[in-house]
Computed example of a mutant assay.
Amino acid sequence: MKNQYLYQMKNRYKIVVLLTVFAFMSSFVVHKFYVSVTQIDFVPKKQRIEITSRIFIDDFEKGLKKKYNKDFYLSTKKEIPETNDYIQKYLEEKMKFVINNKPYKVTFLTKEVEDDVLICYSKVQFSEKITTFEIFNSVLTEMFSEQKNIIHTDINGNKKSVLLTYSERSTLLEF
């Protein structure tokens, strides 16, 4: 009985030591988190869908550089003049919308910086009642397989959220 107790105590001690070592070691390992957040709002009065995407600047620069083989220097004095054209081209390819079974083009409007995040404003001209809304978002998935693209929608007064990933890049919402 006493030997069994000592055996259990030694095993517990080993587990505690291993967990402590693991916790200590993991505090030195930086694990990058790859995520974008996109808000999609249908604004019938303006006859458009407004899209606001928040993407980490450093990740977006890496993605743009890989895609177009250029340094963009986003949100710095060295930013190249044609940056907005490349962002438009990139977002057209990486974000697609099929509304009521018909594809629509995303138009990039402008961008701004908030801390280490680039906020991209885009729109889709649309004036009908929305019954189905298919969203395709593969922003930065070609660069980071761990990329998560969170989508929040407010369409016809209905709020929904979805998570898109490298393996699941699209979703269909019904209203």
Rank of each mutant, 00 (worst) to 15 (best):
M1C: 06
M1T: 06
N3K: 15
Y7W: 10
R12S: 09
V17T: 10
V17E: 04
L19S: 11
F22S: 13
F24H: 06
M25C: 10
S26A: 00
V30W: 05
V30A: 13
H31C: 03
F33S: 15
S36E: 06
S36W: 11
T38D: 01
D41G: 02
K45C: 12
I51P: 01
T52E: 08
I55N: 00
I55S: 03
D59L: 00
E61N: 08
L64R: 00
K65T: 08
F72W: 04
Y73I: 12
L74A: 13
L74I: 15
S75V: 01
T76S: 11
K77T: 10
K78M: 12
I80S: 11
T83M: 13
T83S: 05
Q88A: 14
E93I: 12
K94V: 02
K94A: 01
I99A: 01
K102P: 05
V106F: 12
E112G: 11
D116E: 06
V117L: 10
I119T: 14
I119D: 07
Y121V: 06
Y121H: 09
S127I: 02
K129I: 15
I130R: 10
T132S: 09
T132C: 10
E134W: 01
E134A: 13
S138A: 13
S138R: 06
V139E: 05
T141C: 11
M143N: 12
E146W: 08
H152D: 01
D154G: 02
D154T: 08
N156D: 09
N156K: 14
V162K: 12
L164R: 02
T165A: 01
T165P: 06
Y166R: 05
Y166A: 10
S167A: 11
R169G: 07
L172F: 00
E174D: 09
F175W: 08
